[in-house]
Amino acid sequence: MNLTLRIWRQRSSEQAGAMTTYEVRDISPDMSFLEMLDVLNEELILRGEDPVAFDHDCREGICGACGMVINGQAHGPERTTTCQLHMRHFQDGDTIDVEPWRAAAFPVVRDLVVDRSAFDRVIGAGGYITAPTGSAPEAHATPVPKEAADTAFEHAECIGCGACVAACPNGSAMLFTSAKVVHLNSLPQGAPERESRVLGMVAAMDEQGFGGCTNTGECATACPKGIPLPSIAAMNREYLRALRKGAPGRV
């Protein structure tokens, strides 16, 4: 396959960027999108040019490191991560636009790499349980109802890639935050911090400059892990419940 790529090039967060056109030849349809970019980068290095910077790690679709907006869609046309997107989903001669996640909370570091530490700060505000660590507890020590376990597991699938923010017209992190809140709040282990978790994480989410939710559903359509849209309703329920009850210890 021969392709024309229009890729966002930006040397640093301070400098302005622009879409730059490249041609790539003899791309196998079995390559992943990242492998195709590797081919381009090898060529650029041979020509003495700067390779295109992009995030990647496991290349198995489970780490959440990679992510770019391909032809206006987060992670491209298939519902998967960019590393698991294969070139067979494109046609020979296609022009493909590649851009970084666009959000005020995700500043561009270089080219297609954005700084997603805003997600870490949301997690830091309550996306954990306060429990002594050490050897793993006996599995039956805390009984978990099957339904709660299923819900928690479904939401624990979130890999924090940021596709939801990239796809949302408002750059909102509601789906990400709801995945974390629902995951921990549906388990008995998460119960002691149920109220402070959702209040803290939502406050942190707003503080990072993410937009609000307008229920367009773009996030859930883009999510490579299939976190469903009603999760946002579940988080709203938790949030309003916590506001009514007040965080534990409040007088």
Binding site: R6, V69, Q73, E99, R102, A104, N170, G211
Partner: peptide, 27 residues
Amino acid sequence: QLSRRDRAARPQRYAHRQPARGSYATR
């Protein structure tokens, strides 16, 4: 207030516009 915040959350738009998927009512 929410609309202003939403616009500020995406200061730079995508060069390749997303195909509109939400319903007309939503938009």
